[in-house]
Amino acid sequence: MNSDEHSLTMSAVAELVLRRPEFDTQLDTDLSKLHLSAEDLRRLELFRGLICMIKHAFMWNRTPRIRKALKYSGSEIAFFSAYTRYTSLKDILEWDIDQRELAVLTFAQDASRLKSLGLAKAMGISGLAAHVLKANVPNNQSPPLLPMPLHLTCAYLRTNPSITTGFYDNDPRTSSWCNECQLKPGTVTVVYGVGEPIAIACESLARIVITSKEWVKASDIVNEFATPEFKSKVNLELLSSLVSHGIMHVEHRYA
């Protein structure tokens, strides 16, 4: 092997580790030059997961229970390796912590994707969501009726409805990306996903349960699932009215 080929080999391994989309198009050609066995390729892809996991070490503090679930299920490296099949490590390394957190939680949110990887059951994660209810206010107007902008934040649920889940991440009012949002007087934690009505305790105003990944109208939420506790603390009629009249809308924060 001459020096050019030697250099190319080292760069190709590095590109495999970073796994950027444009390199994937060359992958078949370059892999054949590398003479990697299938087992070594599997190990290298897991190694990429290890790097990704280390770059997400902050999750011990910011999303500790999710991280524990991954670790104790023995699929932490596999999870991050799977994540880097969908998101290039090159991109991840260029993101700041907030961007990394949002992206990896969005990945974890997709229960069907995790299930296809054989990870969902082991981890007990079936859905994560972070949405923001924002006011539809034209820039040149002062806010109309906005007694309580709602911040619908990241939450966690398990597929087993008998499991009582607590709030899985930091207090949304103190997590950094929530602090960037101007809409934070009222905080509501929302769980959704996989068709099971699972409530989680919310330390702030209320609890809401949504039973599918599709957002339903606020009035439906209120009528079908709102608890007395919720009703006693939140002006649901006002909320429903704000949403149904287009004064507020639900924004998928990760979109």
Partner: peptide, 17 residues
């Protein structure tokens, strides 16, 4: 390493690890 990426070919890049 020296990038093989078509968009950034030859530039010095890092794997971060």
């Amino acid at each position: 390493f020296s990038s093989l990426s078509a968009q950034n070919k030859g530039a010095i890049e890092t794997t971060g690890y």
